Amino acid sequence: MSSFNLYRSSRYRRALFALSLALPVSLLLAAGVGAYFIPPLEIPRVLWEKADQAYAVLVAIRFPRVLLAALVGAMLALAGAVLQGLFRNPLADPGLIGVTSGAGLGAAIFIVLVPGAGPLQVFALPVMAFVGGLLATFGVWRLASNGGRVQVLTLLLAGIALNAAAGALIGLLISRASDEQLRSLTFWTLGGFGGATWITLLAMVPSGLLALWGLLRLAQPLNALVLGEREAFHLGVHLEPFKRQAVALSALAVGTAVAAAGGVGFIGLVAPHLFRLLAGPDHRYLLAGAALLGASLSVLADLVARTVVAPAELPVGVVTSLLGAPFFIWLLLRYKREVAR
């Protein structure tokens, strides 16, 4: 192995090691900081003694919230990394395949058209969002499919069309919504982890872990696809099954995340790019690195959302958009300069 390859390999490993340390640090920080402050270094003692109010706050409120934020961030970032590799476009985002807008439409239908759901809303709303996201992805796939083959560009255009249609239907439902329904829909659409419970977390763990496991296994075909579809085929990649697997697992990851937390934007775009800047584009490391980085970013964004205007709370989607939009503009300008060369 050349000295350059050894350097690149060690750079990837250093980045993964740093992110593996950053995630538990961010989890401890987010678990301790809040309206009821618990020194992060005291958390192990509090958990061991199980004696005071701090223990109840940690177990009942903070831990479900920070763990849900970490899992959602990991799923969004990993799906974003896979879709950027599939589309071979650094500006690709999980929302492009329609799952985010489909989930939003499913939630809007339930909030506006099923009044008086009461306690059922806690369970039925995420289910409707999840089903809406998967149906939207299936519709995009059917639109882009031609004789059993799917063109990536056609898939992208179908996603844009379905996003527009779902946005129009959500707007129609908003025009019919009452003030209470409008508030509920607005806060859900902007995203947040305020309603996190152990039940919510456990409900999303099976599909979330399945999506993470499946997406992490796509590193080798994504590396081959960088060379182009024809070259990837000659390297042994079965393109159509691979595309179906990548889109289905991405939809599962994003649908689960949106169902649990609403619309938390830009993590799927930002996290993969930050890891590329830290280490490089090799998907064998990029996928795991993006998941770790996305988890940390989501946890820290939630920490900012619930502390910066305390005792009130900002939607997490607002925080991630405020941070992600300038980054997206920078990426767009950089991509434009590279194309012009």
Results as ranks from 00 to 15, higher is better:
Gly104Pro: 00
Tyr285Lys: 07
Arg176Met: 13
Tyr12Gly: 04
Gly263Tyr: 05
Val127Thr: 14
Leu135Ser: 11
Gly118Thr: 10
Leu252Asn: 11
Gly106Ala: 06
Leu332Asn: 05
Leu216Gln: 08
Leu68Thr: 11
Trp330Phe: 15
Gly104His: 06
Gly214Ala: 15
Gln121His: 01
Phe328Tyr: 14
Leu86Ala: 08
Thr307Tyr: 05
Asp52Ile: 00
Met75Glu: 09
Asp179Gln: 09
Ile267Gly: 10
Val72Gln: 04
Leu212Pro: 09
Ala107Lys: 03
Gly191Asp: 07
Leu91Asp: 07
Thr256Ala: 15
Val72Ser: 04
Asn5Lys: 15
Ser101Thr: 14
Thr256Cys: 14
Pro272His: 06
Trp330Pro: 04
Leu252Cys: 05
Tyr12Arg: 05
Gly228Met: 10
Val264Thr: 05
Ala103Gln: 02
Gln53Val: 14
Thr189Gly: 12
Leu6Thr: 14
Thr154Asp: 14
Gly98Asn: 01
Ile267Trp: 11
Ile329Asn: 07
Glu42Thr: 13
Phe275Ile: 02
Ala161Tyr: 01
Val127Asn: 03
Arg45Thr: 06
Pro90Val: 06
Thr189Trp: 05
Pro90Leu: 05
Leu227Met: 15
Ile109Cys: 12
Ala108Arg: 08
Leu113Arg: 11
Leu322Trp: 00
Ala257Val: 01
Ala310Asn: 06
Phe130His: 06
Arg337Glu: 08
Pro315Met: 07
Trp188Lys: 03
Glu229Tyr: 03
Val316His: 13
Val59Thr: 14
Phe110Gln: 02
Gly116Arg: 09
Val25Cys: 15
Leu83Gly: 02
Leu76Ala: 10
Ala257Trp: 12
Gly148Lys: 04
Gly80Phe: 06
Leu300Met: 15
Arg88Lys: 10
Gln245Thr: 10
Gln151Ala: 15
Leu27Gln: 10
Ile111Phe: 02
Ser10Gln: 14
Ser145Met: 10
Leu83Phe: 01
Asn146Tyr: 12
Ile199Lys: 14
Tyr36Ser: 09
Leu278Asn: 06
Gly95Thr: 04
His234Val: 07
Val57Glu: 11
Gly116Lys: 07
Leu169Pro: 00
Gly228Asp: 07
Val122Pro: 00
Pro281Arg: 08
Arg217Asp: 08
Phe110Met: 01
Leu287Cys: 10
Val237Arg: 03
Leu297Glu: 02
Ser3Asn: 06
Ala257Arg: 04
Phe4Tyr: 12
Leu209Ile: 15
Pro241Arg: 05
Ala144Gly: 11
Arg13Phe: 01
Ser26Glu: 01
Tyr55Phe: 15
Ser2Gly: 13
Ala177Asn: 02
Phe327Glu: 03
Thr100Asn: 12
Ile199Asn: 15
Val25Pro: 00
Gly133Phe: 07
